[in-house]
Amino acid sequence: MQTKRIIPCLDIKNGRTVKGINFEGLRDAGDPVDLAELYSENGADELVFLDISATEERRKTLAQLVERIAERINIPFTVGGGISSIEDVELLLNSGADKVSINSAAVKNPELITQISKRFGNQCVVVAIDAKLIEGEWKVHLVGGKQPTEIDLFDWAQEVEKLGAGEILFTSMNNDGTKAGFANEALAKLSSLVNIPIIASGGAGNKAHFLETFQKGKSDAALAASVFHFKEIELPSLKNYLSTNGILVRL
C-alpha cells in the first residue's frame, strides 16, 4: 500500500500567508516561515507555497522567501505562482525549492512542461489545474480561476502527463472554500486516466473529508489551507484518524 500525503498549502501575498474564499476576499493568516516550521514539526508530509502577489518585484522576493524556508524546514516543498520560464524554475530550485508548480503558463506554453522535465526531471514539475464544473463538464480556468477556457480537465490532465508532468494538483473551484469535501468523483476519474500522483485540493472541512478523498477519490495526497491555518484541524490528530481508519500515513 502507498503512503498518503497531507499537504498544508500557504498562499503568499507580499510575503504573508493569506487564504482566499472562492479565490476572493483574502484573509491574513500569518508569517509563512513560522507556519511552515510549525507544520513541519507537526507532521506535514510536504508543503506548498503559492505566490499570488502580482508585483514586478515578485520573482526576487519569492526566491528570497524560498531560501528562508529551505533554511529552516526539513521536509519537501513546492513553490508556485507566476512561474513562466525555465529561468524562473532554475532560480526557485536553486534557492532550495524541491518542486515547482505551474498553472496558466503550462496552458499557454505546454512546451514549458517538457523543458522543465527534461532539464530538472519530471519529479519536480507539478502541474496545477483549476477547474470548474459547468453544465456537467469540468472546464480548466486560468489566472487564479478568473479566466475560463474551453479546455476539458481530463483531456488536459492526460496531456500534461504526456508532456512530462510529475504530479497533478487539481483544485476544484466548485469545492474550494466550501468546506464541504473534495471533488472525489472527478479525482477518482483523474486517477484512473493518468499514472502520475494526483493531489486533491479544494473543499477540506473536516477529517472525514480527507479519508473520503483517499478512499473514494483515490487521491495520492490531499492539500488544504484554512483548516490548518485556523487550527480547525490539527495535523497529528488528522494523521492518527487516517491511520485508525486504515490509511497508511507517516506518523
Partner: peptide, 12 residues
C-alpha cells in the same frame, strides 16, 4: 512498472 503511480512521491 505501471502497476503503481510513477514517480513514487512518498514517505516510505
Amino acid at each position: 512498472g505501471n502497476e503503481l503511480k510513477v514517480p513514487q512521491i512518498a514517505w516510505n
